[in-house]
């Protein structure tokens, strides 16, 4: 896998965002989920057709300034600041889980800044009568069972892998915890910050992709997004849980490609 370029953007309010960037073509921004950002096969494949910008959420990885972001609204503004720093007026946004929620918020708050929106099993909705599991009260092994289709897969084991050496192990664990902390800032205690009341503002053509076996955000939650976003298409992919973009990578990239070129797919 070719290595992406690491760039640092110093934004107003003492916030520094580090991005991974690669590829040529139309700009596309990827917002990662609560597990943090790694350059994975999904991003690598996208980078064959697009100029991919993947920022680390402030407070995760090398990005700094979480303490200067008060709430979700502040975070949305931070990402507009990042678009300004990139010199991009309007961008294609792909967001996974927490990132999907942020992408929807960005598209709703200022529709002029988002060209096309892809939300991969986005967070942002919660039903008391059929609650999604509490991401922040799961043992690491359980979390992997919830987000993967096959908990015995190589992908699943890679999520739990730890270095042997104590110092390295401690740093890897701290990195995972601080990433989760940054995510929790925008999802605690229930991942519903009112997005349903703003979804109708989204003007961008929207593609929703869900893993049919998603145990973290149940597929039934897709209905809210499908019904609430004016131009939304929903595709359910089989043999995929919450890491749908890694478990059905080729299909996801193909769907995104068709969607971007304007031939929006119909749900199978």
């Amino acid at each position: 896998m070719p290595q992406p370029t690491v760039r640092e953007y110093v934004l107003p309010r003492d916030i520094t965002i580090t991005t991974l960037e690669a590829g040529r073509g139309e700009p596309l921004m990827f917002l990662h989920g609560a597990g943090g950002l790694t350059w994975d096969p999904f991003l690598d494949t996208l980078a064959t057709n697009y100029r991919v910008y993947a920022p680390h959420l402030p407070g995760s990885g090398p990005s700094r300034g979480l303490e200067n972001i008060r709430d979700l609204w502040d975070l949305v503004i931070t990402y507009y600041d990042l678009l300004d720093a990139l010199g991009v007026d309007s961008i294609n946004l792909v967001g996974h889980s927490l990132g999907g929620m942020i992408a929807c918020e960005m598209a709703a708050a200022d529709p002029s800044r988002v060209q096309r929106l892809v939300a991969l099993c986005p967070a942002g909705v919660f039903h008391e009568n059929r609650p999604a599991p509490d991401l922040f009260a799961l043992l690491p092994r359980e979390r992997v069972e919830y987000i993967t289709y096959d908990p015995q897969s190589e992908l699943a084991s890679s999520l739990l892998a730890l270095p042997e050496e104590v110092d390295e192990k401690v740093e890897v664990l701290i990195d995972r915890l601080t990433t989760l902390q940054a995510a929790a800032k925008f999802l605690w205690p229930i991942p519903d910050k009112g997005l349903r009341r703003r979804m109708h503002r989204i003007k961008a053509p929207t593609l929703l992709i869900w893993g049919r076996q998603d145990r973290m955000i149940p597929p039934a939650y897709a209905d809210d997004f499908k019904a609430g976003i004016p131009q939304a298409e929903l595709v359910m992919l089989d043999k995929a849980s919450h890491l749908v973009h890694l478990e059905q990578c080729a299909q996801c990239v193909e769907l995104i490609g068709k969607f971007m070129s304007g031939t929006a797919p119909k749900s199978p």
């Binding site: 401690v170 664990l173 701290i174 915890l177 989760l180 902390q181 995510a183 800032k185 605690w188």
Partner: peptide
């Protein structure tokens, strides 16, 4: 909860 202890204390 994630973030209950600071990174320094965690370390």
């Amino acid at each position: 909860a994630p973030g209950y202890r600071t990174a320094a204390t965690l370390r």
